[in-house]
């Protein structure tokens, strides 16, 4: 349901995270999120917290641009 942005830009946001944190941290995030939140409910803020915890990187600017910005974010780069 909902608009195209949550699909297309949502997918791109996930990829931007991958580029920023590198493959090792990225795939650890993808496995840890469903393990820690299994059978539970979760929010965007909790996902961002988890990504920062696992990667050890500050990701608020990345997520701000990709999730809340109203123009195309810059090309993602490794942080």
């Amino acid at each position: 349901m909902f608009g195209e942005s949550v699909y297309q830009r949502g997918g791109m946001t996930v990829h931007a995270l991958r580029v920023a944190v590198g493959d090792q941290a990225f795939f650890e995030i993808l496995k840890t999120w469903p393990a820690e939140k299994r059978d539970a409910n979760a929010t965007t803020a909790e996902f961002v917290d988890l990504a920062e915890r696992i990667s050890g990187k500050q990701l608020d600017r990345l997520f701000d641009a990709w999730l809340y910005g109203t123009e195309r974010p810059g090309q993602p780069r490794p942080l």
Binding site: F2, V6, Y7, T13, A42, T44
Partner: peptide
């Protein structure tokens, strides 16, 4: 992403759809 880890609020729907789209990729 969406079922086992479910939304608390609908505004976070990108968490479901963004990760499912990425899984397609």
């Amino acid at each position: 992403f969406g079922n086992s880890v479910a939304l608390e609020r609908w505004q976070d729907i990108w968490l479901n759809e963004g990760l499912a789209t990425y899984a397609e990729w």
